[in-house]
């Protein structure tokens, strides 16, 4: 673990109704680090992201972001602290135009930077520039995904959390998304990404975390993940 992590969560417990979804999860992300979050369906990956975001209340444990205690804060406060969120199912605003979706999230980052402007996003996703006047609900799945990532970047986050960004997309579009995420990482934004494509994740992320039934069973660098291939495959049901 790095000495001064950007995000640090310890002993997180979370529930959906009566079911205990996260059981004492420790999870951390360093500045500019890229981390993958792996696990079969229903193991708690999405819940972990939502708990970190403040959308699901953390019952036990401790969450710090950039040195500040953010446990129990509202999602809006977590977002303003510098966390960009790309939810599963994308969550674009269908009744806002592409441009409006972007302007909506526009703000300077917690460190005062404004690296990500509309121009920068359009450079990253030229397709969005062509469709800037279209309504959110007129976009294809891939375009929607680009828009959600672009929208999250507009708030100049220091950490981007991406949930299932390539699910249901055509292979060429997927490659586009992965390439973009690598570009974003190169610009110094820390990324947590939930996905099922192990090979792509290994190319993007330096560290990997596997969740099984709400507990962390693996937390290590790409080399270790590759070395323990059988264990990993059995845990992921591949």
């Amino acid at each position: 673990m790095s000495a001064n992590p950007l995000l640090e969560a310890r002993g997180i417990d979370a529930f959906y109704g009566a079911s205990h979804v996260l059981r004492g999860v420790d999870f951390h992300v360093g500045r500019g680090e890229t981390v993958s979050l792996l696990g079969r369906n229903g193991m708690g990956k999405t819940t972990l992201l939502r708990t970190l975001m403040g959308l699901v209340p953390a019952r036990g444990g401790d969450i710090r972001f950039d040195g500040e205690d953010i446990k129990g804060r509202r999602p809006s406060a977590v977002a303003r602290a510098g966390v960009g969120f790309v939810p599963e199912g994308r969550g674009i605003f269908p009744n806002l135009s592409v441009e409006e979706n972007l302007i909506f999230a526009e703000r300077e980052g917690p460190d005062g930077r404004r690296d990500w402007t509309r121009g920068a996003i359009y450079q990253l996703f030229p397709r969005l520039l062509e469709r800037r006047a279209n309504w959110g609900n007129q976009l294809s799945g891939g375009e929607q995904q680009m828009l959600t990532i672009g929208r999250a970047l507009m708030s100049n986050p220091t950490l981007l959390m991406v949930d299932e960004a390539t699910e249901g997309l055509a292979p060429m579009v997927r490659d586009d998304i992965w390439r973009t995420l690598r570009l974003i990482a190169e610009r110094g934004v820390a990324i947590v990404v939930v996905d099922k494509n192990l090979d792509d994740l290994k190319k993007l992320c330096r560290r990997h975390v596997i969740l099984v039934k709400g507990e962390v069973v693996f937390d290590g660098p790409t080399e270790e993940l590759s070395a323990r291939d059988d264990f990993v495959r059995s845990q992921l049901g591949l």
């Binding site: 975001m53 999602p75 809006s76 406060a77 977002a79 605003f93 806002l96 909506f104």
Partner: peptide, 22 residues
């Protein structure tokens, strides 16, 4: 107006993008 329209379709996402929905 953008906020209102956005909140009408997806209030959770409005919150997750940094706007206090309260």
């Amino acid at each position: 107006g953008r906020l209102i329209r956005a909140a009408e379709s997806n209030p959770e996402m409005v919150e997750a993008l940094g706007f206090d929905s309260r």
